[in-house]
Design a binder for these strands. Sequence first.
DNA 1: AAATGGGCTTGATCTATGTCAATGATTTTA
DNA 2: TAAAATCATTGACATAGATCAAGCCCATTT
Lengths: 193, 193
Amino acid sequence: MYELLYQKIGEIISITTEEFDFCKTLFLPKKLRKRQYLLQDGDICKYTAFVEKGILRTYSVDEKGNEHILQFSPEGWWLSDLYSFLTHEPSLFNIEALEDCELLLITKPSWDLLLEKIPVFERYFRILIQNNLIVTQRRLMGTLSETAEQKYLKLIETYPGCLQRVPQHMLASYLGITPETLSRVRSQIAARK
Amino acid sequence: MYELLYQKIGEIISITTEEFDFCKTLFLPKKLRKRQYLLQDGDICKYTAFVEKGILRTYSVDEKGNEHILQFSPEGWWLSDLYSFLTHEPSLFNIEALEDCELLLITKPSWDLLLEKIPVFERYFRILIQNNLIVTQRRLMGTLSETAEQKYLKLIETYPGCLQRVPQHMLASYLGITPETLSRVRSQIAARK
DNA sequence: AAATGGGCTTGATCTATGTCAATGATTTTA
DNA sequence: TAAAATCATTGACATAGATCAAGCCCATTT
């Protein structure tokens, strides 16, 4: 159950098997069925999750009822509403399983304990968050300058895996365009080949 | 010269004066005149900077020649192209002083040394980057769902200080709209009051 | 004081994308 | 297997914001 977690941690830092044994005690395994929520808008994000299996989406809903996807989180990724998790303020996001999922959950107190007992995890999370920031900044700059078609082409280049697992209208709401526009963009690309 | 840095670090972690004395030796003071570049697109970002005085902007230029501003960095903030700094790949960004600035620069080797000698800095930078990620994620979600007017209103609410120091067309390119649109948005808001 | 130039505003268009609506196709549920 | 959702596509039309262009204001330089 913890193999993937162990592997992912080992890609970035070195810890002993004793340390990892302690680490394991801090996590709560959890299964989610497809369409089940890990977090709902208005609730406080009590857990940060490591995805062992499946894929989830984090999204918000605007006043007009449109959904906007912040990220997809397939197996091997960490997942949380960082702001709500850290501050205990109600979250603006929903986190929903797009497939049956297996997660490892950690609460804020356990997370704090982990950082305290095994300080090298400060480094681990610093690097994870750093990488996330770099990707998010790039995406932001892309939304400021690119056309719908450029965004889509960049997406399929960057995350070819997502395309098979995620319905098209969710890709659209990740890109910040409507499903209709995405459909038209795709048919234009196809027509040119 | 190092007062602000000391104060800012102390807001997040505790370090001894000896530790801070060591820390100081790793920084290189640097003054920039208004319009001078700290980093140009295509160069490798050799420094992370702490801003003691002044304000800078980080921006990129797209194929059509339009500028898109990633962030403004006033005094008390850290500043870098994280990706280029970490990987030594050429940067896609320009960093330009918008006023005469006083900076403290640290190279990658010195930064690594700092983290190694005073590991609590892992925590410090983790928290900084974490806060940056939270803000960037919110801004991204905003760009996906908000109108030009909503974005502008949120900006003046969130960063009232920037408005006085930064020319309006740069606020527009931060928001991802044209200067003309921002001008019209402002006149509409004014007309309603 | 004149000249230069950057920055802001305003007007007239243009365009990419959104909105609304209908039609099949495909998957899920009963 | 039928019924019901869900999803992708396509067409007609609407609109927010971009683009192009002109003029004005204010600061800096000559």
